[in-house]
Design a protein around this nucleic acid. Structure first.
Lengths: 335, 335
DNA sequence: CTGTTAGCGCTTTCAC
DNA sequence: GTGAAAGCGCTAACAG
């Protein structure tokens, strides 16, 4: 288990060149005779030499690492974003330092201790709001910060257009002829943030269609299937229950579907359900939803990071398109 | 964006002590007068000083980092394991370097380039088999390797007992009275590995119950809902279709359920379905399954890693318990 | 094109 | 208990 690591000095000696030349040759810096470079490389190869990234970082002043800060890694959306991010970062030989901040305590601790200090050249926060206090702490890192899968503070970001996604879902329902459509609104319970575009789209699409808004049809909860199930239960208690349900996410929608199923109601005959995300399992439930390209968001964010590291100018806001996917959970209201 | 980083030297100077003393004081190494230590700490605090991990690593010879190598980060199981791992590692101030190896090409590249070389003190591979060639490459890192969520080569590991999990699922079905039970076997298409305990349990439980094994009832595919759906379709084409289905995972089971639903068959009235995992969404589908503590596996693996780093003796095989969770997708066969 | 020489910012003997 | 000094392994001027 102990490392018999070869050093650059050793390589240089064996190749019969100076330290500097060896160094240049190995990261093909300019100013090395091709022959020399090949010789050095051959020796390095043969000794299976690898530079010590720590020594290199120290000398160079940059780390070659990026931090990804992510809540709920065990949820598809987050995992997929990270997967996308990692792939482009790795292609650029940038290492990923992972920080999972699940609950509020984690968050607090993260911003308090800033474990990433001095360890990365940039940090990307995945789909969670960064408050002013947090922002101030993050600034202490004095590195680039970007957001993936959602907007955070005023960092550059890549995400879908939530309003449009919501609009696509709502329009579908409205075009089918539904007028009593409920919204299962999801929020992050640890954060107070302005209503998301997904919520705005609900009201707006209804108004535009000339359908009065009934506040009783709006249920707010945390993201999650059980929460959606509970909210749906409440909705069923109404004297005039909805004929359609618009959920902020597929998981919430799947929860609602369970409640409907258990209540003996049929989907879509009795109630239509639409979600947002196009979670892989949504297809297995035949759930109509709004597809969002998640891995892509991760990849684009990765490219944004690389751009920043290269000191390029980057877009401060990149939106990826969403698309309605009609499956078997929606139909015209029964009359 | 430029780092106005304070150095140890600066702290030492301001505290009026030598470099060595400052260093000792800050990582409370023995041999520093309490008063001195407090003074140094105060100064460091006030300057919000943080050691340069790279310089520290370089001088000390260890990295304080662990690599997590994971396929399919966008799948619940993997994300949850990583989340568990990360939490205990972070508590121990060990950083996590993430390597996502999705497909075969990724894997090959990972083992070829060994991007983690010289960057970590240990690596944990999450639920994927490591062949002999791979193993040889990994050994080049000359660091500890452990496996989480499954056995790999002969590295120490933490996982469930697959045979037992399968046994629990099958026993349930058999006790309900099913005799025509199908198995939706899932395998990693990129790997050739011996049949998993989940498959062995199928045969064994049937044999023990005196039920003849009908090979036509076994369908093998990759892990995944769509695959499960397709396999179920094939099963329905049989002249004597099964009355119960045992799937290697919940995702596969959910796929099978969709096929059944679309075929107009009712669950569990016409066909019972049982999975393995207790995926969060399984509850939303009322799927009977075998629960496995996934985050826990991650955490225990994390502790194993920490033990190894401390040079403790560690268990070479840790099994966490699984448990049948009966929901509404299973019932006695209709007669 | 190539070698020498300083550091990069810490940790760690080894004396005091 | 404390400080001086020698690295850790590499990169980046700077001279040749």
């Amino acid at each position: 288990m102990s490392a018999p690591n070869v050093t650059l000095a050793e390589v240089a000696r064996r190749a019969g060149v100076g330290l500097a030349t060896a160094s240049r040759a190995l990261r093909d810096a300019p100013g090395v005779a091709p022959a020399t470079r090949d010789r050095v490389r051959a020796v390095a190869e043969q000794l299976s030499f690898v530079v010590s990234p720590d020594a290199s970082s120290l000398a160079r002043g940059t780390t070659g690492r990026v931090a990804i800060v992510v809540p709920h890694l065990d949820r598809w959306f987050f995992g997929a974003i990270v997967a996308g991010l990692e792939s482009v970062l790795r292609d650029a030989d940038v290492d990923v330092l992972l920080y999972h901040v699940g609950d509020l305590a984690d968050r607090r601790r993260f911003f308090e201790q800033l474990p990433a200090r001095r360890k990365v050249d940039a940090v990307v926060v995945v789909a969670f709001p960064v408050g002013d206090r947090d922002r101030a702490r993050l600034d202490l890192l004095s590195v680039h910060v970007v957001a993936a899968g959602g907007q955070s503070a005023d960092y550059p970001y890549v995400s879908i257009d939530d309003f449009q996604a919501g609009w696509q879902a709502m329009s579908h329902l409205i075009h089918l002829g539904h007028t009593r459509v409920a919204m299962l609104e999801a929020i992050d319970p640890d954060q107070s943030v302005p209503p998301s575009g997904r919520s705005l789209a609900y009201e707006r699409s209804l108004i535009d269609a000339g359908i009065p808004i009934d506040r009783a049809l709006i249920r707010t909860s945390a993201w999650g299937g059980e929460e959606g199930a509970a909210s749906m239960g409440a909705l069923l208690g109404l004297s005039a229950p909805p004929t359609a349900v618009y959920a902020h996410s597929d998981e919430v929608a799947l929860g609602a579907m369970r409640t409907l199923r258990r209540a003996g109601l049929r989907i879509p005959d009795d109630v239509s359900v639409v979600g947002i995300d196009d979670h892989p399992l949504a297809a297995l439930a035949d759930l109509t939803t709004v597809h969002q390209p998640v891995q892509l968001q991760g990849r684009l964010t990765g490219e944004m990071v690389l751009g920043l590291l290269r000191d390029d100018d980057v877009e401060v806001a990149v939106h990826v398109p969403t698309e309605l996917v009609v499956r078997a959970s929606t139909a015209p209201p029964r009359r």
